[in-house]
């Protein structure tokens, strides 16, 4: 069984240092059992979470998120149970000498379970954004290639990516047609930012490193470079919204000034 952050080792040391009073031993056994249960859950998440995410075809991944919320709640329940017993049943009974070892034991346990909870889903790729984007573009191409004038039946050539409904005038008979690529293609609008973030992860990592070394002010240049790359990528994904993306760029840079540099 996995041993997170040497909880068991610490537990033994704590017990040794107190000489293992009955209360310490009792708490140790109790927390040990809870810890083992948390480890079982953690292992289960490692095994199955990715397949749950993959099987969920909903663009918002609602079934997967429901599963995740349920598992997080179980980790929380374990922590609450341990904490409740420690506060209500252990602390009032402990002698001052015992208390130090007990609190060490409890803290190690708490940190260990918390780490399991926060890291349990780290390995899961919730959404394959590149694949979603590819599917959207395939759907779009299919619709675009079948798009004809409702009046004269002439083939209407579309050279821009219209992800929402748009009026297109027929070049042959001047009839106004509505080009509506459908629900799936509309999702491109919601995909643009996360996909651009994914594609600019290298720039983001550079910024993060600079930030660690130089602080918020010193890392400003690299943050700007990241934001410009991000906006450029969003322009590529959603052409026609360059002005809006520029406004968004201004907001990100302004927020950085307000919340990071002058904090």
């Amino acid at each position: 069984m996995m041993n997170f952050f040497n909880f068991n080792k610490e537990k033994n040391q704590a017990a040794d240092s107190t000489g293992g009073t009955p209360l310490t031993q009792r708490l140790q056994t109790f927390l040990g059992k809870l810890h083992a249960r948390a480890e079982e859950m953690h292992a289960e998440v490692q095994d199955s979470a990715q397949s749950v995410a993959d099987a969920d075809s909903d663009p918002f991944k609602r079934s997967y998120l429901q599963f995740k919320a349920g598992m997080i709640a179980q980790f929380n329940a374990i922590m609450q149970k341990g904490s409740g017993v420690y506060q209500k049943e252990v602390v009032p009974k402990a002698s001052p000498m015992e208390l130090m070892a007990l609190s060490q034991l409890f803290n190690d346990w708490n940190i260990s379970v918390l780490n399991m909870m926060t890291s349990a889903f780290d390995h899961v790729v919730e959404r394959d954004l590149e694949r979603e984007y590819r599917e959207i573009m395939e759907e779009y191409e299919r619709y675009k290639d079948r798009f004809h004038c409702k009046q004269c039946g002439g083939k209407l050539e579309i050279h821009t990516f219209y992800f929402t409904a748009t009026y297109i005038a027929c070049p042959y008979c001047r009839t106004q047609n509505t080009f509506d690529p459908g629900t799936k293609v509309r999702m491109a609008e919601h995909l643009a930012r996360p996909l651009a973030e994914l594609r600019c992860r290298g720039d983001y990592e550079t910024y993060k490193q600079q930030r660690k070394l130089l602080g918020a002010k010193g890392a400003e240049e690299s943050y700007r470079a990241y934001v410009f790359a991000l906006i450029g990528e969003m322009d590529n994904i959603l052409p026609g919204l360059e002005t809006q993306h520029q406004n968004f760029c201004n907001r990100l840079l302004d927020d950085y000034q307000r919340h990071e540099v002058f904090r």
Binding site: L27, F30, K33, R37, Q74, I78, K81
Partner: peptide
């Protein structure tokens, strides 16, 4: 229920 329901102090 909670996975910890059967574990008692």
């Amino acid at each position: 229920g909670s996975v910890a329901d059967d574990i008692n102090f």
